[in-house]
Design a protein around this nucleic acid. Structure first.
Lengths: 343, 343
DNA sequence: GGTGCCAATTTGAACGATCAAACCGGCGAT
DNA sequence: ATCGCCGGTTTGATCGTTCAAATTGGCACC
């Protein structure tokens, strides 16, 4: 169990001496037990336990030319969604399960240079990129320099097959939201999200479009866009609601839009909101609304596992697949209190 | 500028050969330039740039017996507050400014064992502990084993002077909230927070108590407690509001309580809430309420800087200070829309 | 001209692990 | 008896850096 004491290192040589074997045998006991005679292994293991030996990570890293760390740039906490937080949690767990650690680094300064430095110094073996934008310059830049990375978010506008990525099918998620609202009896289901040009924004809007067509609804122009903040979203939703044949429900590109839409709908005399709205991301804020809001939830645990899996394949030298992984989100349905849809 | 190319290592020996000097001289150019003749230094620097040399981190770590990483256990994202997220961001920046990186590790398994392992293997030099509880077992356990750590949150119930910590004065923050409400004309200011026994909960309640006394208000028993979730908080606030002389405003232990209190107060015919409430933590959710809620904001950037500063002192061998740092939060005031206080 | 000293630079030896190759005794096959 | 082989173990070298001590050349001083 080790005698506790100070945290300074017991080396493999000390263990070897204590067990009366060579360094290499100790190493074998830990890394390739099948090469060691059982009784020798037992003796070595006892010495390891008694001395509390733990292999020095820096020495391993130096020899093996790997840090078993993956780097992630910290992004500023912004907005109501704790998406990054949850992804980070999932990534930490997934990486840990694969023997890797997550090393965070700051946003200060040039991200490209900082990232390259982490790789070149061997501080991390690879990078995880989040918030991948249309034509994201990081992808070709890292790729050209041989910097291993995997994206959360499919690369758009630069050839699918050239990078490794995992992503969530936003179109499918919004389509589920529409399906749900239609099943609840709504016929005029609007969409509120980002203006065109934003990659995942376009994707989510396309999901609404597809579902609306599939259900044969005459809601083709019930679409609004705004900046992703509550005030702007409220104003945009209000414009749609002011039309002669207003929507009775909204599917939204994010929870922030959804909060805006619900505010625009106002509340009835009983205090319940007038407008049924489904959000996207399932942020903590939407559960503590009253009544709580349904929202599309991204399978972040699975995304993180896939990202780590791809990373390990990539580091293992697998040049072949270079393919992305698309995952399906779930709609988290929360009971509605408010007016039922009427036609 | 480096020729880019693959990410594999250029070593210090290659630079030395290119510049026609010894390894050590290259090292000196980087670490102790005053020992090197200017023209030699220039030549070496040119070689460094041309080859794109970057020192190997593992080799440095091995030689210097330090990883320049600090470990932080990822805590599960819970509740409406993005406190951890923001602290993590601040810590990453503060650590980066001091030449350290933040290494995250998962919560799976035994935290004590996992943490000790990170230290013993030399993966991290020190730990940052958050969510320090009353009589937290981690503190004596790490301390006994010589594991360097600094807490965000003062250790309670185990001798102030024995550990390094930085914390935010919650009592002061709540007192500010009360002062603000009193200045706005309220005379019956209630408190809603955690039941007694929780360290920072008691602290924050004490701040309310002190302020209420100082203002000579007869609000001594206007205090309620519940679990920290919106439903429970709403119920608890409702009980206070149902009394013969109900409070006209609330100071709360956290934003979650505050959301509950505002919900319990209900809204008037104009849609604005009836009850003026001040929260704690300034989470993103409170800004997007309507009207946005005032809240006490913890100075997390400063906390992180102090934590890193203490850590470096600690690692530098400073045994003397062993003192905590107490920081003052700010009240973020947001314009109130709703009934003015009446007596 | 020898001595001492200083600045500038080099050499040798770690740091702690692991890889590759060598070694060793014993046993079965030839 | 010799050879080859094999499981088990050890030896030597190496990863890339930095610390500590040694070395060099130059210059002033007595």
């Amino acid at each position: 169990m080790g005698r506790g004491g100070d945290a300074t290192g017991v080396t493999i040589s000390e263990v070897a001496a204590a067990a009366g074997v060579s360094r290499q045998t100790v190493s074998n006991v830990l890394k390739a037990p099948e090469r060691v005679a059982p009784e020798t292994a037992a003796r070595v293991r006892r010495a390891i336990d008694e001395l509390g030996y733990r292999p020095n990570r820096a020495a391993q890293n130096l020899r093996q030319r790997a840090s078993r760390c993956i780097g992630l740039k910290m992004v500023s906490p912004a907005g109501v969604s704790d998406l990054f937080d949850r992804f980070l949690h999932a990534l930490t767990e997934a990486a840990g399960a694969a023997g890797y650690h997550v090393l965070l680094f700051g946003a200060a300064g040039d991200e490209l240079a900082t990232s390259e430095d982490l790789i070149r110094t061997g501080t991390v073996d690879a990078l995880v990129l989040v918030d991948v934008e249309v034509g994201d310059p990081r992808l070709p830049w890292f790729s050209r320099r041989g910097i291993p990375f995997v994206c959360f978010g499919r690369p758009r506008g630069q050839g699918r097959g050239r990078f490794w990525w995992a992503d969530v099918d936003g179109a499918y998620g919004v389509a589920c939201a529409v399906d749900h609202l239609v099943a609840r009896g709504h016929r005029r289901v609007a969409y509120l999200g980002w203006p065109p040009g934003n990659g995942f924004g376009d994707d989510r809007r396309a999901g609404w479009q597809e579902a609306v067509r599939r259900h044969g609804l005459d809601a083709g122009d019930l679409v609004a866009a705004s900046a992703e903040d509550v005030a702007a979203a409220t104003a945009a939703a209000r414009r749609l609601l002011g039309r002669p044949d207003p929507p009775t429900a909204f599917a939204c590109g994010s929870d922030t839009f959804a909060v805006g839409a619900r505010l625009a709908g106002g509340t009835g005399p009983d205090g319940w909101p007038n407008l049924e709205v489904v959000g996207f991301d399932d942020s903590p804020a939407v559960m503590l609304m009253s009544p709580p809001m349904s929202s599309v939830r991204q399978p972040l645990d699975e995304v993180a596992r896939r990202v780590v899996g791809l990373l390990i394949d990539r580091l293992g030298g697998a040049e072949t697949p270079r393919e992305g992984v698309m995952l399906r989100p779930d709609l988290v349905i929360r009971e509605w209190r408010g007016p039922e849809p009427v036609h």
